[in-house]
Write a protein that binds this DNA or RNA. Structure first.
Lengths: 214, 214
DNA sequence: TTAACATTGCGAAAATTTTCACAGCAAATA
DNA sequence: TATTTGCTGTGAAAATTTTCGCAATGTTAA
């Protein structure tokens, strides 16, 4: 199987989310044009993406929602339960802990880290908090592959280094800085300030339709 | 001038951020390859992007940092101060208010909205909070063009409708739902769950370099 | 049975984005 | 002054992504 592009993976994850939301509807099947309308893409785009997952629909009944969800999950989800580490228990960190708590059976944020002794030792939204200096060790011990970074800009690189030292493979970065990581560590940047600036820019234009998602 | 693509705008905003961070260094100039290394792109990409802003560097001294910041800002920033509305004063909403407070002179979140009477009437991180049923009116009165949506999924569409009714032109959407908006309203989706799922997927691959930013 | 219909899967075309490659240039050096 | 150096700006090529167009297909209706 050919490598699936980053953009396609993103859209597949979106389709799955939309399908899960729409799953309570009475119909068991869904057509590419329906999914396309929900997602904001073209039907051709949807069919092209779904080609990649290997599940094939029927011209008469479209795609079976449940099976499609299954097929996308088989492609996109890890084989086993995955623990996630979160660094920086400020307002964003807490927000993500709250969002995630109990939502997924496959993904769980099981270790949070902060410098503040007020926070370490406690359990916040079901997640135990540790001091940052134990980060690398805990990540390594538990084989954690994914980290979420919510520390202030000044601390971002040193905490990243600790994550990398612990053997992390991917980082979701909410800190307003670019991280320096080895080339085989994946980084997804989600700077909120930059996001606002971008939306402000497009708020000032006549034309404003989007093509991507995030 | 040709329309500049969404991706290029994103990168330009990133370059500006990097330049602002690196501005205290002694050198006044910067070369495309330096900026490229900071951003994680190729030098050719950087030069191609900078072409679009109309500021031209010198082969000998590269780009003058201060002038480049100015030029990007001229392209990307609004002509006048812009007010921003924020809906949903939960943990994400608060995090964004905290992040933004006092950071920018051009962009300011001046009105926040929530259903909870505990919050409305108060001032949080310098921003006054109002009940959501006043949203459309306040947005219209003040000519607010940009909104940040941090409400739970269930409320997202109705609050969006109120924003649109008030004349909003762009929405930064942190709610885990797709919004239905008129075609001339720009929406940038930032679903945190989907972001985590994406990073988890790429944490499981051998190869993991990124090409985009966010 | 047969015809009409709306959809999928996908090869191929089109559009977009990125990279290459090099002329032209200003500074540094000999 | 002449030469070398390493950069920018950009046309053109390459790569990637999206869209088109249509044969194949299962369903419904006559």
């Amino acid at each position: 199987m050919n490598l699936i592009s980053e953009k396609t993976i993103e859209r597949l994850i979106l389709y799955r989310g939309l399908l899960l939301q729409a799953n309570h509807e009475n119909e068991s099947g869904i057509y590419s044009h329906q999914l396309a309308r929900m997602a904001g893409f073209t039907p051709a785009q949807v069919r092209r993406d779904l080609m990649q997952v290997g599940y094939t629909g029927s011209p008469a009944r479209g795609y079976d929602k449940a099976k499609l969800i299954q097929s996308i999950s088989a492609l996109v989800d890890p084989a086993e339960k995955r623990e996630i580490a979160l660094a920086g228990i400020g307002s964003i960190g807490r927000a993500i802990l709250a969002y995630f708590h109990g939502r997924s059976s496959l993904l769980e944020i099981t270790a949070a880290f902060d410098t503040d002794p007020e926070k370490t030792g406690r359990v916040i939204h079901g997640c135990r908090c540790h001091p940052v200096d134990r980060l690398a060790d805990i990540v390594r011990e538990r084989g954690i592959r994914t980290g979420i970074l919510c520390v202030p800009a000044g601390a971002a690189q040193s905490v990243t280094d600790a994550l990398v030292e612990g053997g992390i493979r991917g980082i979701l970065n909410y800190a307003p800085t670019r991280l320096i990581v080895p080339p085989d560590v994946y980084v997804e940047n989600r700077d909120m300030i930059m996001a606002v600036e971008k939306v402000v820019y497009f708020s000032g234009l006549k034309t404003g339709q989007r093509k991507e998602n995030g």
